[in-house]
Amino acid sequence: MNRITRDRISGALWLAAAVFVTVSGTRLGIGTYDDPGPGFLLFWSGLGLGLLAVVLLLLSLGGRASAEEGPLRLPRRSGVLVVVSLALYCWLLPGLGYLAATTGLMLVLFGLGRMRIRNVVLGSLMAVILSYILFLHVLKVPLPRGILSF
């Protein structure tokens, strides 16, 4: 995907977002100039975003992709794995608790670095235990306990 296509797609997305924000602002109530309502700034911001998106679209429709600009690649497998593991972590953290969920997350993250299994496990355990001590005992952050109750 070259830059021009990328700008067309992002321009279309911004335009859709602008419509949504403008409509939301209208629903909230724009008010009047002497008594602006809660939707006042959203409405005008939405219109502003829409205007900029249209300019971006027009410029990208009139432009040609140049060879020097590289294609837009999707994130590599490691990037996707990081995002998926972080999403799973958010989902599992309240139930499993900090120690279990974070150990799982760190095993995945260190595992992506192609280290020996022993180093992955040791590194994960050290990172989790040190962060647990720092945040729970030093900084007094009530980390989620989960099913393990500690």
Binding site: L86, L105, L109, F110, L112, G113, G123, A127, S131
Partner: peptide, 12 residues
């Protein structure tokens, strides 16, 4: 491979 997991842990 060591630095980035630790940065993500601090972020989380």
């Amino acid at each position: 491979r060591i630095l980035y997991p630790l940065i993500l842990l601090l972020c989380v």
